[in-house]
């Protein structure tokens, strides 16, 4: 058990926490359309967020955190005083992280190729590259693409509605 713990900590300290590289590249890029598409897919896994992050720092949560701290201290070897860095590390470790962060940390890429893993179980891209396009406003087959955000529309009417109220909604 001790092994597990220190290993995880070591991994944390030596490897700088990087955001999923693809995501970072896309978000950092000036390509609005890629950004918008990614943000939209991300949003599909959202709960009524915003409120959640505030709640995490609430008092009742803090009491749980202290329990954890005591528990963590017991486990770290010796009675060495915690350095500020170690403490920050522990705090970072305890705050609930998204699955994608945990995934990054697990470093599954380093597993040999024959080992089944979360990453290798992904179904992969479709064999046919053809994609149907539906109008983002009304849902019917859409021939046109918004040059700003990449969403689709089928007619002038839908284009106007899109431009007026919906364009880039998922990025802002």
């Amino acid at each position: 058990m001790d092994d597990d713990n220190s290993n995880a900590l070591r991994r944390m300290s030596t490897r700088t926490r990087k955001v999923a590289t693809k995501m970072a590249a896309a978000l950092g890029s000036s390509d609005n359309r890629t950004q918008a598409a990614l943000a939209r897919l991300e949003a599909l896994e959202n709960d009524n967020a915003g409120i959640e992050t505030v709640e995490m720092n609430d008092d009742d949560e803090a009491s749980l955190d202290e329990d954890d701290q005591g528990y963590m201290q017991k486990r770290s070897k010796g009675t060495k005083r915690k350095t500020r860095q170690a403490k920050a590390l522990e705090n970072a470790r305890k705050a609930p992280r998204s699955f994608l962060e945990l995934l990054q940390e697990a470093n599954l890429e380093s597993l040999p190729p024959h080992v089944p893993s979360y990453l290798r179980a992904a179904v992969g891209p479709p064999s046919s590259t053809s994609r149907r396009h539906f109008c983002s406003v009304c849902g019917f087959s859409a021939r046109y693409t918004c040059v700003t955000c990449g969403m689709r529309f089928c007619s002038c009417r839908c284009q106007n509605i899109h431009n007026d109220t919906r364009c880039m909604k998922f990025v802002a």
Binding site: L41, A122, V123, G124, P125, P126, R132, F134, C138, G139
Partner: peptide, 30 residues
């Protein structure tokens, strides 16, 4: 109207959404 079937349609054709993933039938074949 069309939302009623375009929503479950995602499982069968995630590409329509812009997801680079195969749909359920191909998933089974793989």
């Amino acid at each position: 109207t069309n939302e009623r079937f375009l929503v479950p349609e995602m499982i069968f054709q995630p590409a329509d959404l812009g997801m680079n993933e195969a749909g359920l039938a191909e998933c089974i074949v793989r």
